[in-house]
């Protein structure tokens, strides 16, 4: 049962990622990326990472993709009409490079298999909000506070960059 669920979610994730790359319309690409994020959140649920599944939908599929769609609508970007209209050596090289990366990672995965430790029986409790928050606010309190400074700096920097206009002349 759980295997079939994983296969369904994995096929959905890969298909939406492929559709995002080969789609000419930018808005459709963004919406396919949302499907990818949601299916990835389902895979996090299969891995007993409930907190991260919720955060994935809230932050990625919610906030970041709304930001992307907002920018796409703001810029009024046109479709890429010339994508895939004729064979280019660039596409061939890109596909060869992608296949090489897949092969390399699969080769390394096959080399290090059977090296996992025995899992304890409390694996189901590892990804809950209590477990994550317990570690996050004790052991990783300083990086957590640094994240607040980072986000504030990012917002201020984004405002400065987006307002700046080069004088033509």
């Amino acid at each position: 049962m759980i295997v079939y669920l994983f296969i369904l979610l994995a096929v959905l994730a890969i298909a939406s990622a492929l559709a995002m790359v080969i789609n000419k319309n930018v808005v459709n690409s963004a919406l396919f990326l949302v499907i990818n994020m949601v299916s990835l959140a389902g895979i996090y649920l299969l891995l007993n990472a409930q907190f991260l599944a919720v955060i994935q939908i809230l932050v990625y599929a919610g906030a970041i993709m709304v930001l992307f769609l907002f920018v796409i609508m703001l810029l009024n970007v046109e479709d890429e009409e010339k994508l895939f209209d004729k064979f280019r050596i660039k596409y061939f090289l890109a596909f060869v490079l992608g296949a090489a990366v897949v092969g390399q990672i699969f080769y390394s995965i096959a080399g290090v298999t059977n090296m996992l430790p025995e899992i304890s029986s409390n694996m189901a409790e590892i990804g809950t909000v209590e477990a994550v928050g317990d570690v996050l606010f004790t052991k990783y309190l300083l990086p957590f506070e640094m994240t607040a400074i980072l986000l504030t700096a990012a917002v201020v920097g984004a405002l400065m960059v987006a307002q700046y206009k080069i004088k033509k002349g």
Partner: peptide
């Protein structure tokens, strides 16, 4: 790995 490579392409 497959998703990462799709991103690279």
């Amino acid at each position: 790995a497959i998703m990462f490579s799709i991103g690279i392409v």
